[in-house]
Computed example of a mutant assay.
Amino acid sequence: SMTFPANCIKEMFQPIDDIVDFDSAMWSDVKNVAEQFTLNGKHFVAPINFLPGSVITYDKSMIDAAGLDDPYELYQNGEWDWNAWYDMMSEYVEGAAADEERYGINGWFAPFIFQSTGKTLITYDADKDEYVSNLNDADFVRASDMLYDIAKNGMYYPDWVGQAGDAFKKNILFYAMGPWASTGTHSPKDGDNWGVVPMPKDPNSDTLYTTIDMNAYMWVKGSTKNDAMKCWLECAKIVYTQDTYKDIEKEKFFVNNPNWTEDMYNVAYVDLVTDKFTKIFDPGYGISTTLSDNDAATNDTKEAVIPYLYTSVMKTDENGSQYTWTQLKEQYKGTVDSELKTLNEQYHAYLEKNK
């Protein structure tokens, strides 16, 4: 998590511009993403391929039984937004019989709701040439209000559920998780009729934003094996660039997941990884151990500050009171600001040294 920007500023890696031409046919499709990982105008990351960090899987028979619209059709029509998502969960939960427990959602979705505004908690400000905090952003107030309400109104199932099928058995309408949890051994069985949609979009934005998992390579400082590294990167990239390879991959997928539909596949493995979605990355995951490194975290939930802030309006304190965004901001603003101050000082020293 600390590779960019912190460890690049510490000069553990070197720029890749000598061996990767982002205007070439092979690399141009990832140029926009690579631009987000630059220091001093130089690129440090060669993106190889993208994988959805989380998609929303649902059981169409549950949707039909509750008399709800099919989320995939809403998505196709550009209507799959926070409001549609929230209203659907609300209606489903309120429609429970007296002896029945229903939930709207389980899994990994909170950061994506924040980021569907097109913003991240930490961002690089080109005018100031430094990394700054977005904690006070008005769009984040809207995002946090909605997440807060989802939990407050009993729509959120907070415990871990390891696969989509188990979520549906627990009357959870939407299961948000990486596709690993609805493919392979977790794939729909014969007779299942599932659907997949991306995270809902911000109703105030026409652009579809996503943060995404990325396989990428960086180049260790001190290496002089330019030709070998160039060759290695191109071999890795070509598999995700050439249609022949992509077709083989897709064919293999459907052999292993015969009950996935073409629509589901297109959402998870085409729309989210191609240009339909604008990909954004939060540099907050690479600032310092305090902000970014879960393994070094000492708080109750063992989460570093940035990942913690994204999900915490859905959590409660030891007295069972739900955290508000205002509380969380107050509590962590000082830490975020001081960690950024340190990083920015190191960053400007790095620029000075590498003029």
Rank of each mutant, 00 (worst) to 15 (best):
Y265P: 04
P258I: 11
D243G: 14
M177H: 09
M229Y: 08
D243Q: 15
Y245T: 00
D213P: 09
F174L: 15
N215R: 12
K201P: 09
G195H: 04
K230N: 12
C235R: 14
Y175I: 08
Y209M: 03
C231Y: 14
V220D: 13
I238F: 07
E234V: 00
K221L: 05
E249G: 04
A176F: 05
E249N: 15
W232F: 10
T241C: 08
Y265C: 07
K246V: 14
I248S: 04
P200L: 00
D202R: 03
I212G: 02
S223W: 00
S223T: 07
V220P: 01
G222K: 02
Q242K: 11
I212K: 08
T185H: 04
W260T: 06
W260K: 07
G178H: 05
D192L: 05
Y265N: 06
K250A: 10
V239D: 04
D206Q: 12
V197K: 03
Y209S: 01
H186F: 06
K201H: 15
T261M: 13
P203S: 11
G184T: 04
T224S: 11
G195E: 06
G191D: 05
L233E: 01
S223R: 09
A216T: 07
M199H: 10
S182R: 01
N259L: 13
N256L: 08
N256R: 12
F174S: 05
I238Q: 06
Y217M: 06
L233I: 15
G191I: 04
P258E: 11
K189Y: 12
W260E: 11
Y265A: 07
N193V: 08
K189L: 15
E234P: 00
P258K: 06
N257P: 01
W260V: 03
N215F: 12
F254D: 07
D190K: 14
W260Y: 15
D243F: 10
T183H: 04
P258A: 10
E251W: 07
L208V: 06
D206M: 09
S182I: 03
D263T: 06
I248D: 04
C235N: 11
N259V: 02
Y265Q: 07
N266Y: 03
T210W: 02
F174P: 08
Q242P: 00
T185R: 12
M214Y: 00
S182N: 09
Y217N: 01
V220R: 14
V196W: 01
K237R: 15
Y240D: 10
I238V: 13
V196N: 06
M229I: 15
C235I: 08
T261A: 12
L233C: 08
A176L: 13
P258D: 05
D213L: 12
S182A: 10
D213K: 06
Y217W: 01
K201M: 08
A176E: 09
T207C: 00
G222C: 05
E251P: 02
S223L: 05
D192I: 03
N215E: 09
V255K: 13
I238Y: 12
P258T: 07
F253S: 03
